[in-house]
Design a protein around this nucleic acid. Structure first.
Lengths: 231, 231
DNA sequence: CGAATCATTGATGAAAATCAACCCCGGTGG
DNA sequence: CCACCGGGGTTGATTTTCATCAATGATTCG
């Protein structure tokens, strides 16, 4: 870890995995429990770096609580966020020796982490584990392929519509979405500026497609309209 | 295969793989030979579809000769090309039951193909094979991550500079690059229009960074300048 | 309460898309 | 052999979208 300033890690052997939510997360739980792998929990503060682009990839992570952004930078600071990782999501699984993106906590975030070395060892003896690792990487690839289409060919409004539907699907509770990230993060994810994000959201609000409780608390009123927009 | 109008397939058992060029290709050769897997060759004509988005993924392919584009479409026809596949490259390896992009031959193209089912079977018994499949998918993911940065955050000129360096690396022979794809394909790969591609290339030509033999035959004169541009 | 951060909104500008014309070159057929 | 045809490529004029610059408003948090 890079800055131990936040919270003391608590090491535990996983035996009764707390199943969070989605299917890709369960794969990780299966791997972790099946193999008697040692998992550790750790908490990062808001905006704290979890790992940097190019660093040796020593651990694989699962978000327990909070949210993480992974991104690349150009030399002048322009940033492209490749993905947001929410509760249950696995990240940092870069086959190869080093991380290809930087990971940062968006808000205070607790992760479970396992040594990549032990995962690879498990994969060497257990075909199920190997297959799950492959499947998880393939899931990341699918997302990246969809996101290339968005970045390269969708308009600003279509990008925002797609984003809202994605977040609605992934983190809506009781019809309400509590976005963990700021407008700049959203813009850097969608390849537009924060002002353009704000204008698109305001316009959707004016049209009655969504309602704000606060800037980051959103209720979708017309998912079909959004789906139509997203082309 | 979808249209058999072109060339009769020739089925052969692979024993002495003709090692084409790069490392990712060799992994495929290793898999194919290691496992006594049956490979078939097939040739597609220019612009012929190899498989369509959403179709069941029955085969995995390796380009023997020619070039392939894989892409996604929006409902109104806007297209995002995710990758170009050149001699030696493997494509169509989508874990899951269906292809997530459409694949088309850019020029007359010969591919080697193996049944995905037999690959998966081999992966189930041979850890090396399983690891190679994972590594190949991870290679696609790395490319997609780099390309998201390009699509979301680079300027038109930076995109073209990056493209030229990529193609130079992948297909230059004797300092000369023979591009198999048209300006529209390049634009749809970079998320810009064919006119913008043309203007950027003309400007680079004016600056002496490159020289055209013909529209698709390019010699790079100053790779450092290009690398600087690509930020 | 006040400072800082985040978000919204408006005015202006710049990059790239679009629309349009023309050119170049290879292939075909008179 | 050469004219013509058509697709691909280039270049120019104009429009559009989104970025940038700037000011103000809302929340959160010491």
């Amino acid at each position: 870890m890079h800055t131990q300033t936040i919270t003391a890690p608590a090491t535990t052997v996983l035996n009764a995995p707390r199943a969070p939510v989605p299917s890709s997360a369960d794969q990780f739980s299966i791997i972790a429990s099946c193999s008697g792998i040692i998992a550790t929990e750790f908490t990062y503060g808001k905006d704290e770096e979890i790992y940097g682009e190019g660093e040796p990839s020593e651990y694989v992570y699962q978000v327990i609580q909070g949210a993480v952004r992974t991104y690349k930078l150009l030399s002048d600071g322009r940033r492209q966020i490749g993905a947001f990782h929410l509760a249950g999501d696995v990240f940092g699984l870069d086959p190869g020796t080093s991380h290809r993106l930087t990971a940062e906590a968006i808000s205070d975030t607790t992760v479970r982490l396992v040594k990549r070395r032990s995962l690879e060892a498990a994969a060497g003896s257990n075909v199920r584990v190997a297959h799950n690792l492959w499947t998880m990487t393939a899931g990341d690839l699918r997302h990246a392929e969809d996101h290339m289409l968005l970045l390269g060919r969708k308009t600003a409004m279509e990008k925002v519509a797609t984003f809202l539907l994605e977040m609605d699907r992934r983190l809506a509770k009781a019809g309400m979405m509590a976005l963990p990230m700021c407008r700049r993060d959203i813009g850097d994810y969608l390849g537009i500026t924060l002002e353009t994000v704000s204008r698109a959201l305001s316009q959707l609000n004016d049209q009655g497609v969504l309602v704000f409780s606060s800037a980051r608390q959103i209720v979708l009123r017309n998912r079909q309209r959004l789906a139509d927009m997203d082309a």
